[in-house]
Structures are given as structure tokens and as C-alpha cells.
Computed example of a mutant assay.
Amino acid sequence: MIETARLAGFFAAHGVWCVSEGETLIPLLGYLHTDGEFGMDRLMFDDLAEGARAGQDALADGDPSWLGAVLVADGYVDLDHGKTDALLVEAVEYGPYRQTLRLAVPYRVADDPRGFAVHRPKFMNVESDLDVLAEAFFAGGASHTEAWAVWDAHLDESV
């Protein structure tokens, strides 16, 4: 699950980079092939929710050439202070025992008077050691150097 957590971090960082300029993220599906290469598809549909559903279907079906895959979609998460914009991340590791990782990366939109901000990820339904998966997630995010620079420059850990 560690490689899949890294994959989730890489594509979550890419999503942060996209929304940092104020755009709504077109759902993206990232995957790790058995040969170690990454791939990515933007799920362009007339409706963003339809794109996210197509991504969930793709995660459920998998592909024989994938070791793991991740769906990143723009949405909301309920936090203590209310409904907050967030990148919703769902990752699946394929193999004899399918494992999943779900998390949200809350953010403050670019047109907010306080400016764009990225908040601490909120991990959900973690089936393994959270510390190990979180470390792999952040390492994956940092490996996307351009996107990570945006994340790091706009980090607000107060939320």
C-alpha cells in the first residue's frame, strides 16, 4: 500500500497545483503500471460529478496493467467549522488483497479574500499503519516538485 499512498500523494499535489489558480479540478485518474510508469487520464464529462463517477467505476474495475490507481476529484468535506472545499482522494492497490485509502485535502479557494491555502489532509478508512501511509503520501506529493512548491507555499495547518 506504500507505493499506492505515494501515487495518491503525487496526484493530490497535482490537484492542489490545478486548484491553486482558482480553477475547478476536472476529475483525474492516475495509475501506476506494473512496469513502474505512471499514467493519468482527465475525466472530461459535461458534468463533473459524472466524471467522478466514471473514475470510481474505473477504480472498482481496475486494469490488469495497474498496480494501483487514484482518483482525485474536487468536492467538499465537513469539518468542525463547516463545509470546506477539498480534493477528495480515493486510492486502490490491486493484487491478491485489494486495499483502499481515502482522504480529503481541504483547501481555501483562490478568490477568498485571505487567498488560496492548503490544509492538512484528513485521512479516512485507513486499513494499515497511518504514520507509514502518511509518510508515503507526503513523499509522493513532494516528488511532484512544481506542485509541491505551490502546496508548501500555501500551507495553512490551522485547519
Rank of each mutant, 00 (worst) to 15 (best):
D74Q: 04
L88Y: 03
E50I: 09
L25C: 07
L7P: 01
M1S: 14
A117V: 05
V105L: 13
D131V: 00
D112V: 05
E50L: 11
D85F: 14
D63T: 06
A147K: 00
L87G: 04
N125H: 11
V72Y: 01
L71K: 05
A58S: 12
A134I: 01
A142R: 13
L155T: 12
A110F: 05
R108T: 15
D129N: 13
G30T: 05
D112Q: 13
A136T: 07
L48V: 11
V105K: 12
A49P: 01
L43I: 05
D152Y: 09
V105M: 14
D80K: 14
F138E: 14
S128L: 10
A5I: 02
T84D: 13
F116I: 00
V77T: 14
D78C: 07
D111Y: 12
V105F: 12
V109I: 15
L133T: 02
E127A: 14
N125W: 07
H144E: 15
E3M: 06
T145N: 09
A117E: 11
E21T: 03
L130G: 03
A153N: 07
G115T: 00
L130F: 04
G82L: 07
H144T: 05
G51T: 02
H144Y: 15
G115L: 10
D74L: 00
Q99C: 02
T34M: 10
R42C: 05
W17L: 12
V150E: 14
L88F: 05
G68I: 03
V16R: 06
D156M: 09
E157S: 14
